[in-house]
């Protein structure tokens, strides 16, 4: 199984000597896992129409790679060298697109969030997009294993005429392998400001009996993959009809709405493969560009 090596590597047991004499292995508290921390800070600026890195810093189990792109945009790919996210891990990404820059960010595979022994993992993403700049946030899906606990914060600060296009998908268990996320915790907070004022907030919260919750019609009607798309741009509202047309024929339940200079869309599907097919078709047409190359690997 693809995940076994990562999972066992990560659940490193405490040395034998750490177990007190009179405590048997059965009653000993679970060994304290080595926590992963990772942080990437990236900034890019535009010089003569080409976006280049102006600052990059990496720490811990998170790296950023910059494959040579085809166009004027800078493509960044975040790599989690720990192979996934587990209890108590903390990953931080901060990216700034300076005036006029165009940055496209992605991940090379699904981000796996493993079973937790109690602690919640944290992922914090902060994007800053300056005047006339554009940032496309296109990570591949986050895959939640049974008993995973994840708190994610996605914060975007935009200049008044800046553009952000963000897509995030979540898969609850690997349906194709007959796995299910029975219980756990997920909170996913989005906040977007434009010119300093809050324009969009979203907080998805599924806590406790996840599988039971997902079966409820108002929650997910038994679907196990969902995705949110947000486009904040000067032309966002004008593109609503186009966005809806691009959803025709989708196998996912999906819809779009636009207000206050932004366009939001959602997908809900029985499994992540169905959702990806629909979302990739939408994103490719809406962006007028292929997905970052890592999506196809």
């Amino acid at each position: 199984m693809a995940t076994t090596s990562a999972a066992s590597w990560r659940s490193e047991t405490a040395p034998e000597t750490a177990i007190p004499e009179r405590v048997t292995r059965e009653t000993a508290p679970p060994p304290r896992r080595q926590r992963s921390e990772g942080c990437v800070r990236l900034a890019a600026n535009a010089i003569e129409g080409l976006t280049r890195i102006s600052d990059v810093a990496e720490a811990g189990a998170l790296r950023v790679r910059m494959p040579r792109g085809d166009g004027p945009a800078l493509e960044g790919v975040f790599v989690n060298t720990a192979g996934g996210v587990a209890c108590g891990d903390h990953f931080t990404i901060a990216v700034t697109a300076q005036a006029g820059a165009h940055v496209v960010l992605a991940t090379p595979a699904a981000e796996k969030v493993y079973r937790s022994d109690g602690e919640t993992a944290h992922i914090d993403v902060r994007l800053t997009v300056a005047a006339g700049a554009r940032l496309d946030w296109l990570p591949q899906e986050t895959l939640l294993f049974d008993a995973a606990r994840l708190a994610r914060r996605f914060t975007v600060d935009l200049a008044p005429d800046a553009t952000v296009l963000a897509f995030e998908a979540l898969a609850f268990g690997r349906v194709a392998r007959g796995e299910e996320m029975l219980s756990g915790h997920l909170e996913d907070h989005w906040q977007v400001t434009r010119g300093g004022g809050l324009v969009y907030a979203d907080a998805l919260r599924l806590s406790g009996p996840i599988a039971d919750l997902l079966r409820r019609p108002a929650v997910a009607a038994g679907n196990r993959a969902l995705a949110t798309f947000l486009y904040v741009a000067p032309d966002a509202e004008a593109r609503l009809d186009e966005a809806r047309a691009l959803m025709e024929g989708a196998h996912s339940e999906c819809g779009a709405s636009a207000w206050n200079g932004l366009l939001a869309a959602r997908w809900l599907a029985p499994d992540i493969d169905t959702l990806r097919r629909d979302a990739v078709a939408f994103l490719t047409a809406f962006r007028g560009a292929p997905m970052p190359r890592v999506w196809a690997l």
Partner: peptide, 20 residues
Amino acid sequence: LDDLGTATFRADLGSMRHET
């Protein structure tokens, strides 16, 4: 305010679909 959050993803999606 950090406790804010909803699970009713499909109902919210429905409000988008209600527009059409």
